[in-house]
C-alpha cells in the first residue's frame, strides 16, 4: 500500500499526524506549565484539583467526543456558529481536551518525584520562584519526555472521539484509526490489518524521535 503511493492513504497518514501532533503540541504548551503549578504551588483547592485532574486522566474518549460534539453542534452548541463540527479542527479540539489532563497529571507526577532539596538548593542560591520552577522542570525533563510519549501514543491510537466529532469523512476527516474501523466494518480485514501495521510503524518512528530527544537531554 505504501509502495503503491496511494494518495488517499498518504492523505490519511498526513491527517493522522497533523491532528495528533497539533493536539500534542497545544497540550504540552498548556499542560506542562499547569502541571508544574499544580505540583509546586500551594493554593486552596489544590488537592481537589489534583483529584479532578487524576480522574480526568482516565476519561473515556467517547465522552470527550460527545461533549465536543454537543458544544460544536450548530443546533445545540455554544460555539456552533463557527461550523467546526466534522472538520480536522474539531478533532484537534477533542484530542487536546483528552490530552490536557493526562499531560497535567503526568507532569505533576514527574515534578513531584524530584528531590525537594533541588528546589531548596536552587532557592538558597538566589533563584527567583520562576527560576526555581525552571530548574525543577529541567531536572524532571526525562519524566516530561516520557509524558509526551505516553500522550502521543494515546492520541494516535484514539478512535472514539475523532470518529464522533470528525465523522470519518473521506478526504476530509478520515484518519488511520477511523479508516481501520471502516475497513473492518466493510469486511476488508486485509486492508484494515495493513493500515494497523502502518499505524504501528508511525508510532515506532515518532517514538524513536522522542527517544532520541530524551537521550539528547540526558547527555547534556
Amino acid at each position: 500500500m505504501l509502495i503503491s503511493l496511494d494518495p488517499e492513504l498518504y492523505g490519511i497518514i498526513g491527517l493522522s499526524l497533523k491532528v495528533t501532533l497539533t493536539a500534542l503540541f497545544f497540550a504540552a504548551l498548556t499542560g506542562i506549565p499547569l502541571g508544574v503549578v499544580l505540583a509546586l504551588k500551594r493554593f486552596p483547592g489544590r488537592s481537589i484539583l489534583m483529584n479532578i485532574v487524576n480522574s480526568l486522566m482516565s476519561i473515556p474518549p467517547v465522552v470527550v467526543g460527545l461533549v465536543v460534539y454537543i458544544l460544536l453542534s450548530n443546533q445545540t452548541g455554544l460555539v456552533g456558529d463557527h461550523r467546526l463540527l466534522f472538520t480536522p479542527t474539531a478533532m484537534i479540539i477533542a484530542q487536546f481536551l483528552l490530552a490536557l489532563p493526562l499531560m497535567m497529571g503526568l507532569t505533576s507526577t514527574a515534578i513531584l518525584s524530584i528531590d525537594k532539596l533541588v528546589k531548596l538548593t536552587a532557592k538558597s542560591l538566589g533563584a527567583t520562584p520562576f527560576q526555581v520552577a525552571l530548574k525543577v522542570v529541567s531536572e524532571a525533563r526525562f519524566g516530561l519526555y516520557s509524558a509526551m510519549i505516553v500522550v502521543f501514543g494515546r492520541l494516535l491510537s484514539e478512535v472514539g472521539a475523532v470518529m464522533m466529532v470528525g465523522g470519518n469523512i473521506r478526504y476530509m476527516t478520515r484518519v488511520m484509526t477511523t479508516a481501520i474501523a471502516l475497513q473492518k466494518g466493510m469486511g476488508e480485514f486485509q486492508t484494515a490489518l495493513a493500515l494497523g501495521m502502518i499505524l504501528l510503524l508511525m508510532a515506532f518512528l515518532i517514538n524513536g524521535i522522542l527517544e532520541i530527544l530524551r537521550n539528547y537531554g540526558r547527555a547534556s
Binding site: 532539596l117 533541588v118 538548593t121 538558597s124 538566589g126 530548574k135 529541567s138 531536572e139
Partner: peptide, 10 residues
C-alpha cells in the same frame, strides 16, 4: 547562600 548537609547535584 546556604550549603545543605546533603549535597544535591543538579
Amino acid at each position: 547562600a546556604l550549603v545543605f548537609q546533603k549535597p544535591v547535584m543538579f
